[in-house]
Design a protein around this nucleic acid. Sequence first.
DNA 1: CGGAATTAATG
DNA 2: CATTCTCCTGGG
Length: 461
Amino acid sequence: MQTTQYQQARLTRDPRFDGHFFVGVTSTGIYCRPICPAPLPKEQNVRYFDSAVAAAESGFRPCLRCRPDSAPASWAWKGTDTTVERALRLIDEGALMQGSVTGLADRLGISSRYLTRLFQARMGTSPKRYALYQQLLFAKSLLQQTRLPVAEVAFAAGFGSIRRFNECFRDRLQMTPGALRRQGADTMVRGELTLFLSYRPPYNWSHLRDFLRPRLIPGLEWITDQGYGRSLQLADGTRGYFTATHDEARHGFRVAISLNRPAVMLPLVRNLRRLLDLDADSARIDDHLRPLLAPLGGPVPGLRLPGTLSLFEAGVRAILGQQVSVQAAHKLVGQLVNAYGETAPGPHGAMRLFPTPDVLAETDLAELRLPGRRKQTLIDLARLFRDEPEAATEPERWRSLAGIGPWTVQYARMRGGGDSDIWLGGDLGVKRALQQHDIVFDPETAAPWRSYLTLNLWSLT
DNA sequence: CGGAATTAATG
DNA sequence: CATTCTCCTGGG
């Protein structure tokens, strides 16, 4: 029975289980992360939940010490239901903040009735209630970790009216935004928007950093021993940058975000979590890959998938990486950014933004030393993103463009979509690694974590 | 806080 | 599919 495992994990406050389940304490009506530093409640007063929403639906409110809103996301439901998984992803990207539940169901190709049924069965709540609760938890962390005015917190979390924000907050978290803000105001740093984003150890930061380093575009991105940062532009045109600094002792990253105007920030923060692959369950993935990689000395522990900021950028990097080395691709990306990326103020003087689809759709890419056919592919992709942004979010649709094959699609899914199950069997680096180490295996057995298998093989060359 | 208009959940 | 229930916002 799973409960025994959960018992064990909570009694030892095992950080590897953080986010996998939550502990509701019936005597207080509060739910905690398994790592909560508070005195351990008696087993008879404990109820286990596999998500924060589920605990909330049973009437528990989040703990103010361990802050369940800061737990890494868990994918306990992964593999059990791909439709729910896709729905959750779209909601997390903000699909219900502007769009409707009906619209979401349409995108998934199911009826809204079926969608709510699935949600009730898998998540113990409805789509709208799930989305709203994520917004509230995000608002809670902004109130506790920043000095953003309450009205701006509401906006950043995706609420259109403060009235409604207050009402929901009271109803679901059983406290008012103002009261929560007053609690920990002294620990906050003024004038900076800094959030702490945590992961479940192990996390191999040096590997991620060393993957990004040879691909780094100066001006667009910056790397230090302990951190990574870059410029960004949101869908609504808001510009800014972030710098993430690794804090190994606290199992997370301190992320400073700077934007040129107030904006809805929840999808952005979700995206940063994907970029740094904070929600991966490394302990489990490594265990799963161990038999396959045993001849090579086992998997590199805590390996994380280095993401790109956007799917479009992943697609562009993939096209520029076709048939050439990492160094050659890197040079091309640099030229592209310098020729077509706008300049904006950054943390260390001026910085570059990654070129937008709108700009690239109208250029001839004369500045790039690239075969004409590949230039056209790049322009076609930019036009797809400009003209049919919704269709473009599904890389499989890119296949209709000339010059886009399976490798490009798979690479983009892996780095721009955070897809954990991509096997790049046709990739040069992967082929070379397999040859050099003279191994044959069936990548199927690595499912649903074939991306990490690919990454492990890349790390060999 | 109240209530109108709209949208979501449910049998 | 139709009914009931919740969400959402402007204005007092």
